[in-house]
Design a protein around this nucleic acid. Structure first.
Lengths: 140, 140
DNA sequence: AGTGGTGTACCATGACACGGGTACACCGAT
DNA sequence: ATCGGTGTACCCGTGTCATGGTACACCACT
């Protein structure tokens, strides 16, 4: 229910979990004090080994996003949103940086880049809006 | 002289070679019919095993960017620039797509995104211009 | 003919990441 | 005390990457 995993992709599964959890915290979907699904439950939902989930949670614990309550579960730290928004900014900045480096190194024009960026931004903004409306309809 | 390799990065070395060759062709630095350094020479310059270079060249041959002249070396195919510009467009489009997906999924505003994009574009454009001038001074 | 250059094809090795399996220590509720 | 749930620590199989070594077929040049 929470996350979408691409097991065939080149990015490790545990890293996808880490990224999506951080983005969810930055977006406000996951708030401080809230419990996250247990490793076995999430592993069952995603058809993934528990160890992979545990590894992701451990990394999130090292990054001070989650907090472990032994024997009970893991919760989102109250001050996690600060770090997560910061991490999100660094993440997209790095992505934009790399894409721009490739584009300019390949002789792409700044104007072509702006056009591509605006087109993609409009497309994904529309998609995000539509998905938001769909989830809103689910409650009616 | 030609390429810059980051052996400690997460991207494989042979893939870095492939990417940089394609971008160089797309930019016009490598033109059709031109010879590329031999596997042993490039391996010596970059302090990399010949097998790794050979693997990159094989992939470039599979992608119809290079052509093998047995016993002589490898040259850039005449029609490679078409494919390389196309590959470059796909590459940066994917990068922008992923960065935007992360940003919107993390609750980033479209305005913040535009600002970040423009700032990074200006910065890297300035750097590219400066490096171009530096290489121009080298011939004087 | 001989020599040195080229790409190509193997095989073996070591390091590392990833994912899966199993067992352990802890907690809360019955 | 017992049981079901939790996180956590280990071990192992697999695949990828880079490296090293060797050998082959081909070409250009002397």
């Amino acid at each position: 229910m929470f996350f979408s995993i691409d097991a065939d992709g080149d990015v490790p599964i545990y890293e996808q979990i880490v990224r999506q959890v951080k983005l969810a915290v930055a977006d406000g979907i996951l708030v401080g004090g809230q419990m996250v699904p247990s490793v076995r439950q999430l592993a069952g939902e995603l058809a993934i080994n528990s160890n992979t989930i545990a590894r992701a949670y451990q990394e999130l614990q090292s990054d001070r996003v989650l907090e472990s309550l032994r024997g009970r579960g893991m919760i989102v730290r109250r001050d996690a949103i600060k770090r997560c928004t910061k991490a999100r900014n660094s993440l997209v900045a790095d992505g934009v940086r790399r894409a721009l480096a490739d584009a300019l190194s390949g002789g792409m024009t700044a104007e072509e880049l702006r056009e591509l960026f605006e087109a993609e931004l409009e497309r994904q903004s529309a998609m995000a809006e539509q998905s938001k409306l769909a989830s809103g309809n689910g409650a009616s």
